[in-house]
Design a protein around this nucleic acid. Sequence first.
DNA 1: TTTATTTCGTTATTCATTATAACCATTTCC
DNA 2: GGAAATGGTTATAATGAATAACGAAATAAA
Lengths: 159, 159
Amino acid sequence: MSTDRDLRTLVGYNLQRAQTAVMTGVNKTLKPFGLRRATYSVLSVVVETPGLRQVDVSEVLAIERPNLVQTIDSLEKAGWITRSRAEGDRRAYELYPTEAGRTHYAKAHAALSAFDKRLTAALDQAAVWALIDGLNAVEAAGPSAELAEDRRDDVVQTT
Amino acid sequence: MSTDRDLRTLVGYNLQRAQTAVMTGVNKTLKPFGLRRATYSVLSVVVETPGLRQVDVSEVLAIERPNLVQTIDSLEKAGWITRSRAEGDRRAYELYPTEAGRTHYAKAHAALSAFDKRLTAALDQAAVWALIDGLNAVEAAGPSAELAEDRRDDVVQTT
DNA sequence: TTTATTTCGTTATTCATTATAACCATTTCC
DNA sequence: GGAAATGGTTATAATGAATAACGAAATAAA
């Protein structure tokens, strides 16, 4: 009987498996709206904070700036957001949602929230909070856990 | 002040963010061992269950069979596992760890477990269990949550 | 026993995501 | 005033994952 019992002891492995299972559903949910995970996220933060800049989006969503270009291009082309040159800084654009963008986002958000709720249907509210808190803690710990690893690299390599 | 507050209400978004943050560390941890996430996982299940077949690995790890080929190739080439033709079925191989493979796996496992522990250093044991249980519940719910979505597609499209 | 279907592993290919280098125009810092 | 940093972009590469199709072999059905 083959198992992945050893792997299941790792938070990272469970995370990877859950992420893979969920992203399929996320993309299926967003597809009828002409959206994908990244475009939905960008639309969401622009609707939430009209006027923010690409560098702000990059920071908030942890997406590299070059990778935002086409994502924002497609939202602009669809008529859901606009790029306006920033006052006081001709390098930057301010991103605003259009009315159509707000409406579209509201619909997509409803569908995605419903899907998200079905993901956690088997959990009570306390368990959902524990899951989210745990995810946030792990996300926050990621970089510093790596840092320790960099020091371990030296040990491994000299061993 | 730009935020992703709306997105943070979604388990899926928190999952994605945590996964991205963690996988960087996982790959950095495994790199000195000449391993990546997929090769480590395959080595792990082969060490745990000597003799299993590629189709078994595919099922256990939820990796498509064509994508396993090069992963197993590299483990074999490194001398950590072997492919042996299965008795009674000349189509199939049985995968076995070598002694070097077992040793290498033990070392990589120790490093990855240490990294994983640092990920959850800020959580008590109950919170870690809640996180893992939540991840497993969400992973399990993924496919059926999609199914409901397929039915919703019809609704969305006729609306 | 023969034929049809399914299975196991593979090759080929495509697509999406993510990272990095380098560039230009502009702003900020010294 | 010159150097450094910034905001956005183009180009490119690597990785992970999905699918179609194939051949050999096993299993199922007639």
